[in-house]
Design a protein around this nucleic acid. Structure first.
Lengths: 205, 205
DNA sequence: CCGGAAGTTGACGTGTCGTCATTTTTGTGA
DNA sequence: TCACAAAAATGACGACACGTCAACTTCCGG
């Protein structure tokens, strides 16, 4: 073969580094799900890998930083989904609905792992990391665009973005408590509420 | 004096017990505000009192339990406020507005202490302690009553209650970031959003 | 094949954890 | 008033997690 390895693997150094990082993140996911974020220790995480305790600190400063990396991962995956929803939307209502569907789908997938209740898997969600900020801004820009186009009235975009996020979080959590979770119903509810308020939310069946 | 002490102080036992508990809670408040919930240790809290480390465990099992006690305190104080808002409300809109005002006032007062950003003062807020549950139920009952009276359409009361709580939390936090926080403006926004959706939210000035 | 840089390792000192035997304080009945 | 038991406070203790670091291993370029 003229190409012994592949095009990707630059060097063993880089490869194991990436692999170790991923191993730690994967172990952290499991540990947070099983023990809960609070109870989990750096040692628990590292025990879930083949690595030694000292190695952990070559990759992350603390348990908190690992969580941030996981959250940032999520945010990085989620933002483009949101962006595409905005670009492909045929109306403001369509945009809102598909954004909620995307988020609810996201959290359903993110909580497939067995273990502790969802609430205990994460610390207080900080919105102030760069990646989280980017998601907030994406939401806000989507709303500002709608306002600029006249699809939505000229309300306080910051408050509106926060309200949408709050609704998504709480209704999303409530949805997860129901089995099976009905993503569309939850998205319909949230969209209707924001668009027309109580009058717009779907009636009880 | 025919009454050496007062009518209240039953015995020294009970009094110091209550005083110690309060001392621990007060110290915890300060420590959580100054170091953040995550960084704080049981030792930090107990150092903020005159007590010895072992004594802490006569009152609470852990840092988490102290926080829960603080949260329960808040919930216990807040619930009757909410209840009265419901009883005195002249309309559903009035109820919503005064409930939001009450909550926003509450968090403004609760965050007077100097120290770390509000986000870091608390762990992920658990809604599943009895006191917290009671607040959720109070919100939900208020909404169900409105639905029963025909003041609000027959929507999913669980989702609606969660949405209101989510809006209150996120818009509340956003409000705290602005100086000075404008409680009425935030409450107007939230009330309008829920009642009539975007069309009902106040326009930007 | 060698030398050094990059990365890994696990033992170490520090500090927190929750426990518990001991001491101190408080209430009660003689 | 005193003595005694129950209640509560104390702080030392073993266990364990923290983050560090000197020694060691692995990898890469020359």
């Amino acid at each position: 073969m003229s190409q012994p390895a592949a095009v990707e693997p630059i060097g063993k150094r880089e490869r194991t580094k990436a692999a170790n990082r991923q191993a730690i993140l994967a172990a952290a996911r499991r540990v947070f799900a099983q023990l809960g974020y609070e109870a989990a220790t750096v040692r628990d995480i590292i025990r879930g890998t083949e690595l030694a305790s000292g190695t952990f600190y070559n990759y992350f400063k603390s348990k908190e930083e690992v969580f941030e990396a996981l959250a940032d991962d999520g945010a990085r995956r989620f933002k483009p989904i949101l962006r595409r929803a905005r670009e492909n939307a045929r109306s403001f209502e369509d945009y809102l609905h598909s954004a909620f569907v995307a988020y609810f789908r996201f959290i359903v997938e993110d909580n497939q792992l067995e273990g502790r209740p969802i609430d205990e898997r994460r610390p207080h969600l900080r919105l102030d990391t760069p990646e989280m900020m980017a998601v907030y801004l994406e939401v806000r820009q989507g709303l500002e665009e709608a306002i600029a186009h006249g699809d939505a009235p000229r309300v306080d975009a910051d408050y509106l973005a926060c309200a949408c996020i709050g609704i998504a979080q709480e209704v999303g959590t409530a949805m997860l408590r129901r089995v099976p979770p009905d993503i569309d119903a939850a998205a319909d509810f949230a969209t209707g509420l924001i668009l027309k308020g109580l009058g717009g939310a779907p009636r009880q069946s």
